[in-house]
Amino acid sequence: MALKLRLVDVTKLQKTNYLTSEASKAAVREAKVLLDKQEEFMKNGGMDRQKLRAFINSDFWTSRQKQKAREELLNFHNEFKSNMANEATAKRKELNSASRLLSQRKVKKASTVKKRSGYV
C-alpha cells in the first residue's frame, strides 16, 4: 500500500484562543505605549490635529507644494493600507493551510471496478 507522508510546519498551526488573545493583548499594550508617545510629542510640539491641518493648508505654501504634500500623504496612506492588507492576506492563507492541515482528510478508496480489457 502506498503511504503518503505530509510535512506539517507546526509553527503555522492555529494557536489556542488563549495564546491568540494574549498575543493580541500584548500587541495592543505595545501600541498604546506608542500612541501615548505620539500624543505627548504632539502636545510638546504644540500641535493638535486641527492646527496641523490648518498649518499644512495655510497660504504659507504654494498650491503646488500643498498638492504635492497631499499626493505624498495619499501615496503613503495607500501604501500603508496595502501593506496591511497583504499582511492580513498572508495570515489568512496561513490560517487556512493550518486548519487544513489540522483537519482530517478523507482518503479516497481505490476503485474496485476492474477496467475492461475490451475482450469478452
Binding site: N17, N83, M84, E87
Partner: peptide, 26 residues
C-alpha cells in the same frame, strides 16, 4: 470562538504591521 480566534490573529498581524510603520514614522 475558533472564528474569532482567526479574526483576532489577522487583526494582530495588521496591528503589528501598522505599528512598524508608526514606529518608523515616529
Amino acid at each position: 470562538r475558533d472564528n474569532l480566534n482567526g479574526n483576532s490573529q489577522i487583526q494582530t498581524v495588521q496591528l503589528q504591521r501598522a505599528m512598524q510603520t508608526y514606529n518608523q514614522n515616529f
